[in-house]
Design a protein around this nucleic acid. Sequence first.
DNA 1: CCAGGCTAATACCCCTCGGGTATCACAGGG
DNA 2: CCCTGTGATACCCGAGGGGTATTAGCCTGG
Lengths: 296, 296
Amino acid sequence: MVVQDIETRELRYFVAVAEELHFGRAAERLGIAQPPLSRAIRQLEHRLGVQLLDRDRRGVALTEAGKALLHEAKTALDAIAAATRRTQRAAAGSRSLVLVTKAGATHELLEQLLAAAEAEPDPVDVEVLLCEVGEQAGLLRDGTADVAIMHRPYDDLAGFDTEDVLTEGQVAILPRAHPLASREKLLLEEVQNVPDLPIARWPRLDGTYPEGPGPEVRNQAKLAQLVALGKTLLVIPASSRAWQWPRHVAVPVIDAPDVTTVVAWQPSSRSRTVASFVRKAIEVRERLMVSDAQDS
Amino acid sequence: MVVQDIETRELRYFVAVAEELHFGRAAERLGIAQPPLSRAIRQLEHRLGVQLLDRDRRGVALTEAGKALLHEAKTALDAIAAATRRTQRAAAGSRSLVLVTKAGATHELLEQLLAAAEAEPDPVDVEVLLCEVGEQAGLLRDGTADVAIMHRPYDDLAGFDTEDVLTEGQVAILPRAHPLASREKLLLEEVQNVPDLPIARWPRLDGTYPEGPGPEVRNQAKLAQLVALGKTLLVIPASSRAWQWPRHVAVPVIDAPDVTTVVAWQPSSRSRTVASFVRKAIEVRERLMVSDAQDS
DNA sequence: CCAGGCTAATACCCCTCGGGTATCACAGGG
DNA sequence: CCCTGTGATACCCGAGGGGTATTAGCCTGG
């Protein structure tokens, strides 16, 4: 069977249908009419020799193969988007770099990295892109960003090359007046079930929220507000104290897993600019380790 | 600028031209005529707003942006090929797995892995694919294979998830009658410049060979023949002795870098089959480590 | 139990655009 | 100076992608 390549148009169409599970809505989202979409998907199925959708007269469901394709198609489309972005960037010839990080996190470290990049004899122009939690991977994959600052073990680093920059313990952020605020140190267990300060719930990859008493949050700004209002409790890497609020206290949570801040990039990247930025990041790490040693 | 996605057809066309650096030959390779190809590339350049090729009246050269796109396009096309392959595999519903490894390498280890996979209550049907050195990464990326057995530091593991299975020293393979064959151990330096047994040269990624006195080899079979004829000298992981020949001797090269055999897979893989195979591989590693400890 | 409203599939038409042939424009080399 | 080999143009054709109108099932509600 000579399977000629799938066209990206077909992948876009399939992704739309697979995500909407509804031909009409998918067609609307794609800006085309429903019948051509139905036809395109049928053709795709026929070409692959695989049934992708179970069409119940009332709606549509993905088969196992369909689930597989949905996943593969997304990464393929990301790769294509990355191709255009990187090509255009290369054409601009810029010694410039897009760095993506979570809004609000890693303030001091970021400053140091940027300063180091500035200090180069041939300075790299670093554009900083702030995004919601969990979006970094996608932006890196689709070429919007060249490097990301991410956190192990929280972020999904699969498929990226990474370089550790900083490992640190975590602290709980509490209202100054809270009973736990006077403690020297805390345990995870103590922090997890504070009745009046339930831990906030972040959305999963599919957008739904886990069960629990805590408020639902989607970004750091909302979270910061909730913390400031004394509505929730927060366990974050020690260095993120940078966005602390005067009315709150940071108490080390000694058995919380260490968080490692890493710079991540696409392994397929051949950009010299990325390479030199990573080298700078390693220098910053060395510097941090030295000053750590002096502290203790 | 609303840049609609590039179609895979355009990527294929561009890759052909970029690799051939000649519109006529590229068109022939694609099975189309030259004029439509010229037009397609022009459209692509226009759409991206980027000049990809420098057309000299006598031939074609890649611009910087063109080089970038060539690289990106290849990975994107691999991703698309992977999408169809994995979808079809998923549709077949098979608890089967394609494992790719270099012909001739890792004989014993592979046997153990396969035996372990067989021994499962719900056995995984592992299809073994043997390929030339350096091809594994591509086959893994384009979805032909699900897992690969590769060797650090020799193979390019960028972009894959890996699990170490076995670390070992390297030995030199010598004709029994050779002066060095009687030695207890050797140093890299001694091995590197043996006038009558120059080390074989492998092709680089672009297909050219490095300079040197040794014979050019492209695959293990050819190499095996050369070794058997006493034409070249070989430094390989100790366990690869499995393909030793009676007339040859293996002498440890004590300062050669350790070689680690790893199983590698696409981090985007969500296949339960791959996951369970990797788990099996880890079990095999444990077993090997125990028997190592008993040996010493 | 039937009507009405969803859904995806079919039928059919249009016209864009991908591909083919013929030819041109131009640089180098004999 | 002409010939050769290169990519670009001009022009035509037809497949196929997209639109509208309609149909065919299935579920729900009265």
